[in-house]
Design a binder for these strands. Structure first.
Lengths: 254, 254
DNA sequence: GAGTGGTCTAGACCACTAA
DNA sequence: TAGTGGTCTAGACCACTCA
């Protein structure tokens, strides 16, 4: 458990259990992959070598590799090893829930954000049911545009019940990432989101006219749950086709 | 390991290692979920109970549950348990690689298939590289339409190198599922596919005019790998928006 | 046959939930 | 405080690849 008592101690020794060993190993490997430590098609170290390098057990290393494979960053073959998969463009494995901001930054681009709308309003009956609201039926309605290097990649429409915010919170105070704000203010921790994926042409809700009327978007309709299993945020995200790419490694079961 | 020596022996006792214990447990649980053994929001048995019921270890049960969660069929909460998520419509978890045919059947609909095109042709330079073809640069080009209850849900364009087929194979012999054909004839076993997801308006390649010109499709551009890691099939699939739904359970890492 | 990944087990300990 | 899921370990054995 004490990673420092072992090998090279690659993992941070402080905050050891911030995220679990498997997640730490995965993050480190991902950083190394992004920095092109292994070229496209090149073989990664064996599982045993990684076990020794990181000072963790083999199942832990395997969980990290499996997760990277599910994001399409490596390909693992029995009897041969794991191999890096080259990647280009801004995008992400669809299985992974992280802020678009950090994904953009990770890909070497500069993320920014423009708020278009930020108001309290009454919840619709659907939202009351979705969030299981009884007393307080006020929700925050957010509309914003997410950019990479100044170019719009996503239009985002979020709805959150009032209880997720600290008392005395003013919508105008919200800047940057909603996830980031919640983390800093003791709000719910995003744990998972059930997403439904749909193709759409430019929806009415996209407020600026930078696009031709037949511009395509990939829509992700997501309900976010915190670690206690409570739904605390509904997100309707429209990704501009061609500017943000989603990949999925699909694996066979039967 | 011998499942029969333990509890109720729910898993098939023949062909024990057909698919791995975790996959068997998962399939059984999925079947029970689909048959509505647990209603929307209802609690599943605890992990310990499932361990006893299936006669496998806890990590095995957990792998099955995790996989079901990633498909959006259950929601697991620490300290509470796992809960069923209701599902409606034809669709699938995007992470799971299985034939559309079997997905449709599983959802209680009748799958069928119409072949539009089935010919040998020369591989393009891109295909030569993609499949790593040296000698034999002939590929099979397949175009077909997949239906549920007689309604088109997907247009499919497949390309496979000649080596995946038995010698003497005649394209006209191909009926029904390609995966099924390969399984029966000792061809490569599909293991995983790297998919890129895009929204598209009705592509030129959709040959019948049952749709309005602005009909939307969700495109999955997939390269399939067999268990040895060889790419053996390229699939360009166009799912008709509204007739086949994809979901993804996205989970947080950082 | 040596090396490598695939699978499964048994058990330990922690974190969270709910009464 | 008991019950439940979350994480990690150590080790066994199998299946596949490749020289």
């Amino acid at each position: 458990m004490e990673i420092e008592h072992r090998s090279p101690s690659v993992l941070p020794s402080t905050n050891v259990h911030r995220q679990g060993l498997a997640a730490q190993v995965k993050e480190d490997l991902r950083a190394r992959l992004i920095s092109n430590e292994w070229a496209d098609g090149e073989k990664l170290p064996t599982e045993s070598e990684l076990v020794e390098y990181y000072g963790v057990s083999r199942p832990t290393v395997r969980e990290a590799l499996k997760s990277l494979e599910s994001e399409g960053r490596i390909l693992t073959q029995q009897g041969r090893g794991s191999f890096a998969i080259g990647y280009s463009g801004i995008g992400a494995g669809m299985q992974e829930l992280k802020s678009i901001t950090s994904t953009v930054r990770e890909m070497g681009h500069v993320p920014s954000m423009i708020y278009h709308h930020r108001v309290w309003r009454e919840a619709t009956p659907e939202e009351v049911e979705k969030f299981d609201l009884s007393d307080d039926q006020i929700v925050l309605d957010i509309q914003r545009k997410l950019l990479a290097d100044g170019i719009a990649v996503c239009y985002n429409y979020d709805v959150l019940p009032r209880w997720v915010f600290p008392s005395g919170f003013e919508p105008a105070h919200l800047e940057g990432s909603v996830f980031g704000f919640l983390r800093e203010h003791g709000g719910p921790t995003p744990k998972r989101a059930l997403a439904r994926i749909k193709p759409v042409v430019q929806p009415d809700v996209v407020w600026d006219s930078e696009f031709p009327p037949d511009q395509l978007f990939l829509s992700l309709d997501q309900l976010h749950y915190d670690k206690r299993g409570r739904p605390f945020m509904h997100t309707q995200a429209y990704f501009v086709d061609g500017r943000f790419n989603f990949t999925v490694m699909r694996t066979a079961t039967s």
